[in-house]
């Protein structure tokens, strides 16, 4: 048997004095990251469901953006061809492209407005979905949160753990969603318009759209996670411990 006396020695001195001298309770970010990432990997099922919401929403966003960039690229290259043709035949580009090109542009604008509306709606739906699964994943861990508070965790520690978790899910989900949506659209247009489509795209614009998608996905999952995490953190430990799932 190991020396219990040494291990379980009593805290000496008055509590008031000690409270003053060593009032420190910490959760280093490195530890918080380790714990949160463990939580994500060990509760993979739950994380995947939450991430699925992000993936679907962002994949839709990504596909719409990709199709816009590709269509712009195709239109630009078409315009160039017409100009070249016009220069070769001696006519003006207006005569050759004339009515049909103008109608095309009109139609494309209307279509893009519809798509923007769809993107907004899908992001809203995906936001609600993520909020719901975040709420669930916090609720089912009330007891764990209560236990952590018994062990001396401050409210901010709990929020910090859930924030890191949400950010991880948000970033990973967004990246997967962006890639999926992008590749799907690229494939569809390549089959429809020939495999030179990718070359006609304006990649700098595409990258900006991808960055926006990543930001939106991460922000949505963070915003969805904060309120339930804060609510859980503020609970008195006794209440959190007693809660049944």
């Amino acid at each position: 048997m190991i020396d219990i006396k040494r291990l379980a020695k009593m805290g000496g001195g008055g509590a008031a004095e000690e409270l003053h001298i060593q009032r420190q309770i910490v959760l280093p970010w490195s530890e918080a990251f380790r714990i949160s990432i463990r939580n994500v990997t060990l509760r993979l099922g739950r994380a995947v469901i939450t991430a699925a919401g992000v993936i679907l929403g962002i994949a839709f966003f990504s596909s719409v953006c990709t199709s816009k960039v590709i269509q712009d690229g195709l239109a630009a290259s078409e315009a160039l061809q017409i100009q070249a043709l016009a220069a070769a035949t001696g006519g003006t580009s207006e005569e050759l492209g004339s009515g049909s090109a103008a109608a095309d542009i009109q139609e494309r604008k209307a279509q893009q407005a519809r798509q923007l509306w769809l993107v907004i709606m899908s992001l809203l739906v995906c936001g609600v979905g993520i909020t719901n699964s975040m709420l669930m994943s916090v609720t089912e861990r009330f007891q764990e949160i209560g236990t952590m508070k018994c062990l001396g965790a401050l409210d901010v520690f709990i929020v910090r753990l859930f924030l890191i978790e949400a950010a991880t899910i948000g970033v990973l989900g967004s990246v997967v969603g962006l890639i999926l949506g992008h590749l799907a659209m690229l494939l569809i247009f390549s089959l429809k318009e020939g495999f030179s489509t990718a070359a006609k795209m304006d990649w700098s614009v595409m990258l900006i759209y991808l960055a926006i998608g990543l930001a939106i996905g991460t922000v949505i999952s963070l915003v969805a996670a904060v309120p339930p995490a804060m609510r859980a953190a503020r609970m008195r430990p006794a209440v959190a411990l007693q809660s049944e799932i």
Binding site: E18, L19, Q22, R23, I25, L151
Partner: peptide
């Protein structure tokens, strides 16, 4: 306060 309570739970009391 919340901080002192956490300190108490962490260092003074085992559950």
């Amino acid at each position: 306060d919340a901080f002192e309570l956490a300190w108490l739970r962490c260092r003074k009391i085992g559950y």
